[in-house]
Amino acid sequence: MVTEPTAENASAKMRTRDVNVFYGDKQAIDSVSIDIQTEYVTAFIGPSGCGKSTFLRTLNRMNDTIPAARVEGSIELDGEDIYRSRMDVVQLRARVGMVFQKPNPFPKSIYDNIAYGPKIHGLAESKADLDAIVEKSLRRAGLWDEVKDRLADSGTALSGGQQQRLCIARAIAVQPEVILMDEPCSALDPIATAKIEELIDELRGRYAIVIVTHSMQQAARVSQRTAFFHLGKMVEYGHTSDIFTNPREERTKDYITGRYG
């Protein structure tokens, strides 16, 4: 039985209640309820195919792009149900940004990768405003000093780790409230991974951050709250330290100790 997060609910940026996801007749997520706070990095862990990435994608309606997908239950952002209200999906995805497993910079310059979102969302009134957003976003992503002299170069010419930080900067540029990260380090080497993890720690508190990771060590390093998924269910949620040192559920303990997964 999952213990519902209740003590911190008052500060939840996002709340999900009894969320089910179906792909046609197949149920991929079974009655998941969780609160996401700005104060903490929340990690989703679990074996491959357990539903953690599917659930992550419900939080900014990325599953809308899959014709057979159906979502039931309630998912609220600042108290507004993102599926049942008239919320514009483009605006939602600006507020709830996504960083994918494989870095996916646009085939544009470094500058234009960052400037694109603020332009289409009308966040800059002048070139000077746009310049300031680009610099601020790259600084927050820890990339400014590495690229400030080559902003006209293609974003795809950067190293893998730099490309991933560029994608994080691109997400930051549209002033999101939530950043979703779907295994953002799985394609990176250990040095680049360490930089991304440092960045996640620096961004904590400015944004509500949710990270899906296959690495339990990474979850332990970067998160303050962890949810363990298994077979489409959220088996356990709590303080990261408790999940890893004193899990309540036997299935969590088995996964943490390497008995399966």
Rank of each mutant, 00 (worst) to 15 (best):
Phe106Asn: 04
Phe106Ser: 03
Phe106Glu: 09
Ser109His: 01
Ile110Leu: 00
Ile110Ala: 13
Tyr111Asn: 01
Tyr111Met: 03
Tyr111Gln: 04
Asp112Tyr: 07
Asp112Arg: 05
Asp112Thr: 00
Asp112Met: 02
Asn113Ala: 02
Ile114Ser: 02
Ala115Val: 03
Ala115Asn: 09
Ala115His: 03
Ala115Lys: 09
Tyr116Cys: 10
Tyr116Glu: 11
Gly117Trp: 07
Gly117Cys: 09
Gly117Gln: 02
Pro118Tyr: 06
Pro118Met: 00
Pro118Glu: 01
Lys119Leu: 01
Lys119Gln: 11
Lys119Phe: 00
Ile120Glu: 02
Ile120Asn: 08
His121Leu: 07
His121Glu: 06
Gly122Leu: 09
Leu123Val: 00
Ala124Pro: 04
Glu125Tyr: 07
Glu125Asn: 15
Ser126Asp: 10
Ser126Phe: 12
Lys127Tyr: 03
Ala128Asp: 15
Ala128Pro: 03
Ala128Tyr: 08
Leu130Gln: 14
Leu130Ala: 14
Asp131Gly: 03
Asp131Val: 07
Ala132Thr: 13
Ile133Arg: 13
Ile133Tyr: 03
Val134Tyr: 09
Glu135Leu: 05
Ser137Met: 14
Ser137Gln: 07
Leu138Pro: 06
Arg139Cys: 10
Arg139Val: 11
Arg140Val: 00
Ala141Met: 14
Gly142Glu: 04
Trp144Leu: 09
Trp144Ala: 09
Trp144Gly: 12
Asp145Asn: 15
Asp145His: 13
Glu146Val: 11
Val147Ser: 04
Lys148Gly: 04
Lys148Tyr: 09
Arg150Gly: 05
Arg150Tyr: 01
Arg150Val: 07
Leu151Cys: 14
Leu151Gln: 06
Asp153Asn: 12
Ser154Thr: 07
Gly155Glu: 07
Gly155Ala: 06
Ala157Trp: 06
Ala157Gln: 12
Ala157Glu: 14
Leu158Ser: 08
Leu158Tyr: 11
Leu158Arg: 09
Ser159Thr: 15
Ser159Ile: 04
Gly160Ser: 03
Gly161Glu: 03
Gly161Trp: 00
Gly161Val: 12
Gly161Lys: 03
Gly161Met: 08
Gln162Ser: 10
Gln163Met: 15
Gln163Gly: 04
Gln163Phe: 06
